[in-house]
């Protein structure tokens, strides 16, 4: 039933913040089932690129095509499309005033008019998947960073998205909690979820990625399979960056 070639496509995507040019014309596509990792130095525009994909940032020019629809156009009901684009943030952004259960169920109930019982059933399954069933009625302040991030992941999954965007999901975590979050992401990848992941976890990127993009100064300076990019980088900037982080 797919009448489009790519799940997400960006056409000459440009984003300026005032005078600062952050994205300088990016043409990319992400296909269904693909896992794409974006690496690159801080400030190179990785987050901005990701945030343009679900229109949290409005592109200055260019287009974002999601499932065949130009969602960067005026008068698009962006909320409907965002339901299908899950996003996970560096700082979790779980809702502190809502219980773990409500964090997961509130949006399906509000925006999909899902009956409470059905939303809760789904939440139960998701909580079981991440091993937080016993925290169902707790509030986020009782959770560790790793638990909050796992909650944030299933909160997005509850909307049954077609793609998940991860913006450095483990960067704010204590080292001992990184693995529990990466394990959940790995499970998603194994289940065939399309993922776009900005990360500094090079080992993880190498393991899960179909394609790795190296972003530098607002452009995709180099891309390829993990082997190509990590083992045989061509661009001097990529080589320099990898020499610092590997």
């Amino acid at each position: 039933m797919t009448d489009y070639n790519h799940l997400i496509e960006t056409r000459n995507l440009v984003k300026d913040f005032g005078k600062l040019g952050v994205l300088k014309g990016i043409n990319q596509h992400i296909d269904k089932g693909e896992v794409v990792t974006i690496i690159g130095p801080s400030g190179s525009g990785k987050s901005t690129f990701l945030r343009c994909l679900n229109l949290l940032e409005k592109p200055t020019s260019g287009q974002v095509i999601f499932e065949g629809v130009d969602i960067s156009a005026e008068h698009v009901d962006i909320n409907l499309h965002r339901q299908k684009i899950g996003m996970v943030f560096q700082l979790f952004n779980v809702f502190p005033h809502l219980s773990v259960l409500e964090n997961i169920t509130i949006t399906p109930k509000l925006e999909k008019k899902m009956p409470a019982s059905e939303a809760e059933k789904k939440a139960d399954e998701l909580l079981a998947m991440i091993g937080l069933s016993d925290k169902k009625y707790e509030y986020p302040r009782k959770l560790s960073g790793g638990q909050k991030q796992r909650l944030a992941i299933v909160r997005a999954l509850a909307m049954e998205p077609d793609v998940m965007l991860f913006d450095e999901p483990t960067s704010a975590l204590d080292p001992e909690m990184v693995k529990e979050v990466l394990d959940v992401m790995l499970k998603l990848v194994e289940d065939g979820m399309t993922c776009v992941i900005v990360t500094h976890e090079m080992g993880f990127a190498r393991k899960v990625s179909d394609r790795v993009l190296f972003m530098d100064d607002g452009i995709i300076a180099e891309e390829g399979t993990p082997e190509q990019l990590f083992d045989h980088p061509q661009n001097p900037r990529t080589i320099e960056f990898l020499s610092k982080v590997l």
């Binding site: 949290l56 965002r82 299908k84 943030f89 952004n93 809702f95 949006t107 944030a152 909160r155």
Partner: peptide, 14 residues
């Protein structure tokens, strides 16, 4: 925190 609104909007909340 602005992140709260971003999270909500990213889920498709109006």
């Amino acid at each position: 925190d602005k992140g709260q609104t971003e999270a909500a909007r990213s889920l498709g909340m109006t």
